[in-house]
Amino acid sequence: MKDKMKTVAFSNLIASLVFLGAGAWAYSQTLSFRTVKGSYVQAATFPQIMLLGMMGFAGVLLVQSAWKLTRFGFKANDWAYEKAASLNFVKDRGVLFALVTMVLCAAFVAWFRTLGYVLASFLLCFAVMVLIGKRNLVQMLLISALVPLCMWLLFYLLLKVNIPMGPLTFVRDFVDDIL
């Protein structure tokens, strides 16, 4: 049983339960949508049909996966018995670092207005390079600084899109003065 729990079939079983749960919750939300008298299709109708479709196929996946996990449903060389991807960030450093990257991205969003694009991107770019094992400090600093700066210049000068600069607003004034 322990090995079966590491298969794609088992991960599909868990995923189908997640989709069923999420679908049921979302469906319960649609019941509180307001209605309009005289309208043949209410605001809730379309999402309800879609949610029923999603839950229906999640149910099919659940039955399919459960069947494949029994000894009657076993078929050699079926891809459902391949090793499933893991989310165990304690045992798998890859997952842990992927999660750290997500946290870094979330921090980027949170600090975007305060730090501005160039500074926030410098930190994000540098941090991701450190995470994935780049160790050439000069290259890391140059890439982290120049790529966001060039992108900002491209958007500001060519595409006329004003991107927040945070404490580096003086760079914008400097560019304006030059031009």
């Binding site: 991205c105 991107s121 994000l124 770019c125 991701v128 890439i143 790529v147 966001p148 900002w152 958007f155």
Partner: peptide
């Protein structure tokens, strides 16, 4: 990858 990330977010 880091370059793609900062370009995508922008």
């Amino acid at each position: 990858y880091p370059i793609i990330l900062v370009v995508s977010l922008l």
